[in-house]
Design a protein around this nucleic acid. Sequence first.
DNA 1: TTCCAGGTAGCCG
DNA 2: CGGCTACATGGA
Length: 303
Amino acid sequence: MKIIEDNNRVILQGIRDFHPDHTFDNGQCFRWNKESDGSYTGVAFGKIVNIESANGAVILNNVTKEDYLAVWEDYLDLNRDYEAIKRFLSENDPEMRKAIGFGGGMRILKQDPWEMVISFIISQNNNIPRIKKCVEGLCANYGKQIGTYRGKVYYSFPTPEDLSGLTAQDLDICKLGYRAKYIVETAGMVASDGGAALMQMVDADPGEAYEYLMGLSGVGPKVANCIMLFGLRKYASFPLDVWIKRVMHEVYGIEENNTVKMQEYAEKRFGSLGGIAQQYLFYYARETSKKKYNEATGGIEAC
DNA sequence: TTCCAGGTAGCCG
DNA sequence: CGGCTACATGGA
């Protein structure tokens, strides 16, 4: 891969196993939005970035080479060998092969642990478009304005301290529903030591991280696994949401709602790559469901 | 109107 | 422990 710097943008030539659609529209992040030209604009580390795919290259707009090397290369997980991962996961597994054929440009983003805690508390019993609205509401009301891009104002994600002093009523404007109480309580717990305990979980072993997360208000097994996978770099984590439960039942023949057997199967079959396998399956299940829906209703998105 | 969405807390046996 | 249900909100 060749890295070219050009006027506040970075061009990655010959990059493999990366596509913005597969990475930013697969339910792992809630602050990356598709522009009318097909590129994605998002906020991370308090910075606004736009990423597009063009002629086999990937272009990061509003980024210096210095920032790319210091921040974005790692955030986008571009140093991991996804080709080898895909080969391993596809062996003797036709469904996984299809899923990877469909969304093989997915990378697991290395996101901020705190942002993942709050985002996935919001995700419970909720759908992705509305989760994004809730998260954006939190940022617009309690984050800091960090700049504008293409005429739009962007905000940072509020810190634990920003949210810990609030009441659930203060959050009414964000339309979080019954989750507002969990967020205020969890913000208080995390802010009590300045977020130190949560940040330590990046280096803790998965069992310890899981126990810590399960102690936070509004965090159960599914949310804890998402935080571990997307925020704490625990790649064996295998979040079981309604979509993946469906796949585990219909494709791998495991009894409906037998989460213990589903976790055991994932551990045995996917091992340390469980989270990545899960994400290929999640994207495939959700996108093919969308497509079926569009075909049935004559929706234009099926094109 | 009812069902569904990247589920969890609280309660009951 | 395991099973059941209320929970805010908005789109289909």
